[in-house]
Amino acid sequence: MTLDPCERCEELLQEFLDRTLTDAEWREAESHLAGCDYCRRRYRFEETLRRYVKLSAVERMPPGLMSKLEELRGLDAMA
């Protein structure tokens, strides 16, 4: 059973974004995206979503944690 081109594109898209496709797969995805408005929108959505997930999930280190870690220096199993 062969996939229709948009299904095939969907299959490749996550790895396309991860930059882990083979050259041939990369070209396949790229040429489909160039000609398909539907998939191009989904591509932009997935890309935006990833960036936004990362941005939302990042939380700064609480103040004071770094100095607690500094205090741990010098621990030694052999000591």
Partner: peptide, 14 residues
Amino acid sequence: EDLVQETYARAFRS
């Protein structure tokens, strides 16, 4: 915070 401190304690120890 606890997990990070445990991680560094173990890393420094080993």
